[in-house]
Design a protein around this nucleic acid. Structure first.
Lengths: 105, 105
DNA sequence: TATAAAAACAACCGAATGGTTGTCCAAATT
DNA sequence: AATTTGGACAACCATTCGGTTGTTTTTATA
């Protein structure tokens, strides 16, 4: 098994997606991030760690608090991959069109 | 842990992303999909199952073969989620702008 | 100063993940 | 008719995942 820890894995978990959505409204410390999720603060901290390792969020120290901020530019990687897949798919139909056009003559 | 089996999980694995890319060039049977990956056909079949359960590909029987075809429209869910997160993020700055504009008067 | 709060560190747990091998069946091919 | 081929089914395995609890350290606050 290869080392996986990328944006795709970061957004695979629904709790992490919710964390990203929460942070999209503005920076929060870990305790604030964890509010309203029914899980322990430690579990949240682990998600935060994964998200920051993947570059989807950044974390900075401020006194005793750990402030988390969304880095939504990282999600470009995901959108780019989808776009590239779509391009391949469309090219496939273009090729078919060209072929059909050719045999019609 | 809740039952997770959605598009986000489907594209989380790099092998599955490569399968999607391969199928974006046109339909293939399971054996063909598995070529050039260094893993067993059974492992590929499992990935195919997950992808089809998530609606990212469709599988149809044709004689003794199982033909897989990409359903890239399903990836909209991912793009939509990213877009929604971005929207929140942008609104955040708009609010800040409005606030700064207000205190300047 | 005593206490509460934020978070790190560590150990543990059950379930899911990604992979393997072996057996078997049905459809093609020879 | 015999053999190959595509794939299903099942059992197994090590690792990762998402979560827990308990302890400790540091920073605020009453």
């Amino acid at each position: 098994m290869i080392e996986r820890r990328d944006v795709f894995q970061a957004i695979a978990d629904p709790t992490r997606r919710m964390i990203i959505n929460k942070l999209a409204n503005g920076p929060l410390n870990i305790t604030q991030v964890g509010e309203d999720f029914g899980i322990s603060k430690q579990a949240i901290a682990k998600h935060i760690k994964i998200l920051s390792e993947c570059g989807v969020i950044t974390v900075r120290q401020q006194g005793r608090e750990q402030i988390c901020e969304a880095e939504l530019a990282k999600l470009d990687e995901v959108v780019d991959w989808v776009a590239a897949s779509r391009k391949l798919w469309n090219q496939r139909f273009e090729k078919l069109d060209k072929f059909l056009h050719q045999i019609k003559k």
